[in-house]
Simulated scan of single mutants.
Amino acid sequence: MNNLQLELILNEKLSPQLVKDYSPNGLQVEGSEKVKRVVTGVTASLALIDKAVELNADAILVHHGYFWKGEPEPIRGMKGKRIRTLIKNDINLFGYHLPLDIHPDLGNNAELARLLGIKVEGGLEGHPQSVAMYGSLDSPISGKEFEERIEKALNRQPLHISPENVDKIISTVGWCTGGGQDYIELAAQKDLDAFISGEISERTTYVAREQDIHYFSAGHHATERYGIKALGEWLQEEHGLDVIFIDIDNPV
């Protein structure tokens, strides 16, 4: 497959033009015109690039790519080494950030809901491009039981901040994968029982305690593994590419 054709396929699937993002979505570093093997992963770290080189990949497809708003522009140091390695080995880099978070079928939020048994009911921001979602569980469970469910699904123990009513049962849940902890305010306003995200801030603890909502910090990397993996599997099934998912350990 041609690399620009692959970009067109991904753009048609993820509709990046509908989202205001912090980085460019699509082909970020151009490599070989012909793409047969694609390595997918959460972040375009040097470790992932080296693995793609080892596997003779023609392209890397990630959630966290390059050229973020506000980052230094010079291509030097760590950034330079990554990009030199891509160019030297003729490897394309494709990155999709918010479009992959919010995709209703393959996105990080959709995949997290599937893994945790949450029925999606809508976006916390009240529109289709909302990066935070809400839904309900099939049956109410305790905070401890939900903590254990998250740990089993993501293979990572979440940090659980209980509300002052520690015995509050969970029936409704809001969530935003990655660094979406501040959406807990919207979740509390919507009177949800719990909110899940990847990261936690110092202030999040007090919001959870004082606004009567369970909070689960389940890991930025851990909550965002599954969208890029699902997207790669879709590419392989629908378009016949050889796709290999590589999970580079990241405890954050």
Results as ranks from 00 to 15, higher is better:
3 N>H: 15
3 N>Y: 04
4 L>F: 11
5 Q>C: 03
5 Q>W: 06
5 Q>S: 12
6 L>E: 01
6 L>F: 05
6 L>Q: 02
6 L>S: 01
7 E>Q: 15
7 E>H: 03
7 E>T: 10
7 E>M: 11
8 L>E: 15
9 I>C: 03
9 I>G: 02
9 I>L: 11
10 L>R: 04
10 L>C: 08
11 N>K: 15
11 N>P: 00
11 N>D: 14
11 N>L: 00
11 N>S: 05
11 N>E: 11
11 N>I: 00
11 N>V: 00
12 E>D: 14
12 E>Y: 02
12 E>L: 08
12 E>P: 00
12 E>N: 15
12 E>A: 09
12 E>R: 15
14 L>H: 07
14 L>K: 07
14 L>C: 08
15 S>H: 12
15 S>T: 04
15 S>Y: 03
16 P>E: 01
16 P>G: 01
17 Q>E: 15
17 Q>S: 12
18 L>F: 06
19 V>N: 00
20 K>D: 11
20 K>V: 12
21 D>C: 06
21 D>T: 05
23 S>Q: 10
24 P>T: 10
24 P>L: 09
26 G>K: 08
26 G>D: 08
26 G>S: 09
27 L>K: 05
29 V>E: 03
29 V>T: 04
29 V>C: 08
29 V>W: 11
30 E>L: 13
30 E>I: 14
30 E>S: 14
30 E>V: 15
31 G>N: 08
31 G>I: 12
31 G>Q: 09
32 S>P: 02
32 S>Y: 02
32 S>E: 05
32 S>W: 04
32 S>M: 07
33 E>I: 07
33 E>M: 08
33 E>N: 15
33 E>A: 15
33 E>S: 15
34 K>T: 13
34 K>V: 12
35 V>Q: 05
35 V>M: 07
36 K>L: 02
36 K>Q: 11
37 R>M: 06
38 V>A: 03
38 V>K: 03
39 V>N: 05
39 V>M: 06
40 T>A: 07
40 T>P: 06
40 T>N: 05
41 G>I: 12
41 G>Q: 10
41 G>T: 11
42 V>G: 08
43 T>M: 03
43 T>G: 04
43 T>R: 08
43 T>D: 14
43 T>A: 11
45 S>N: 05
45 S>W: 07
46 L>I: 14
47 A>V: 11
47 A>F: 04
47 A>T: 13
47 A>S: 13
47 A>E: 14
48 L>Q: 11
48 L>A: 09
48 L>W: 12
48 L>D: 08
49 I>M: 07
49 I>L: 13
50 D>A: 12
50 D>N: 12
50 D>G: 00
50 D>C: 02
51 K>F: 07
51 K>V: 01
52 A>T: 05
52 A>I: 06
52 A>L: 09
52 A>R: 07
53 V>Q: 07
54 E>Q: 13
54 E>N: 09
54 E>S: 13
54 E>M: 08
54 E>Y: 10
55 L>F: 07
56 N>R: 10
56 N>L: 04
56 N>Y: 06
56 N>F: 07
57 A>E: 00
57 A>W: 02
58 D>P: 01
58 D>C: 00
58 D>W: 01
